[in-house]
């Protein structure tokens, strides 16, 4: 009985591990800085997390298939600058947003084409598109930022509805959609099957190519949405915006316990993972820590999380 209880506890920890880490880090943060628990500060954290959170949702799908997408930052960059350009010349918010989403989708489709259709390994294919698209951004902007003037557009990044910031609402809606797709649709099942065992999935009549391709398209689309949120919040589109966001998104997925080899994981822990990264950022800022040291702390947290993950997995394997 005791053994059984222990085993159950380990399993529980396994499932809610990221939430547990989040709580511990929140406790720490509240202890270290009094201003952390202010509502305005918490919403601030949330807002900053949205970009990595939105992309993390898409990245979870890609990683679940056993792939990876390094190009999300560049897709975000390109969608952002072109959308801002369209906004500057037409003043039409709807058109600007549609442009960002379209560019994201097209870039994601291109990734899927190289990976699923041509069979190029995801790491290499998206490394290529990452570099290529960043080049497009630089040519488009000639290195200078594109300002966003439309107040309607800015509302997407800065506004709030009944006190809740719009980006947070967007993240929550996207998260719910992603969670539904993953757990309640045949496409979600296919994602798990393809990541768990490609050949078995194929022989079971699942269209492996289409499933994988769709995951990259979704990730592209979400990068486009993230671009709108980011440029609207900052009030301009930089040629460097989105640089490094792929690492934040991947780290969030890993912190969430999704296996890099694919087949197991969920969306909720990814969003929690993104929040963990955001809170670490926030608390270090509140404490006036050298911004360069932030990377050191974030990197260490990822390593520690993965180490703990491994230990817990070993323990639960032993308990079997």
């Amino acid at each position: 009985m005791n053994e059984k209880a222990k085993k159950q506890l380990i399993n529980q920890i396994n499932i809610y591990r990221s939430v547990l880490i989040l709580l511990i880090i929140c406790l720490f943060a509240a202890f270290l800085s009094k201003s952390f628990l202010n509502i305005s500060n918490l919403f601030n954290v949330f807002k900053q997390v949205t970009v990595a959170g939105i992309i993390g949702c898409g990245m979870t799908f890609v990683i679940l298939t056993g792939g990876i997408d390094l190009s999300v930052g560049s897709i975000l960059g390109l969608s952002g600058v072109v959308a801002s350009g369209v906004l500057a010349s037409t003043g039409n918010t709807f058109l600007a947003v549609a442009t960002a989403l379209a560019i994201g989708t097209v870039c994601g489709t291109a990734n899927g084409f190289f990976i699923s259709h041509c069979g190029i390994p995801p790491f290499i294919a998206t490394l290529g598109t990452m570099t290529l698209l960043r080049g497009c951004v630089l040519i488009y902007t000639k290195g200078s930022p594109v300002p966003v003037k439309s107040e309607v557009y800015k509302f997407i990044g800065k506004g709030s509805v009944i006190g809740v910031p719009v980006p947070v609402i967007i993240l929550i809606l996207l998260f719910l959609a992603a969670h539904y797709i993953l757990t309640q649709t045949p496409f979600g099942r296919s994602i798990y099957a393809v990541g768990g065992n490609r050949e078995a999935a194929r022989l079971s009549g699942i269209s492996v190519k289409r499933t994988e391709w769709t995951a990259y398209i979704m990730n592209g689309l979400l990068s486009g949405i993230a671009a709108v949120v980011l440029t609207a919040r900052l009030g301009s589109a930089q040629s460097t915006s989105g640089q490094g966001i792929e690492m934040d998104a991947i780290a969030a997925v890993i912190l969430g316990g999704t296996s890099l080899s694919g087949g197991t994981g969920f969306v909720l822990p990814t969003v929690v993972g993104a929040m963990i990264m955001g809170i670490i950022d926030n608390i270090l800022t509140l404490m006036n820590v050298n911004p360069h040291a932030t990377s050191i702390v974030k990197g260490s947290v990822v390593l520690i999380a993965v180490l703990v993950d491994k230990k817990v997995k070993d323990l639960s394997a032993k308990a079997e």
């Binding site: 099957a193 768990g196 065992n197 050949e199 078995a200 022989l203 197991t264």
Partner: peptide, 13 residues
């Protein structure tokens, strides 16, 4: 093991 089942997923799936 290689072609029949997805070993890391549930029996139901």
């Amino acid at each position: 093991k290689q072609e029949g089942l997805v070993l890391i997923r549930s029996i139901r799936e």
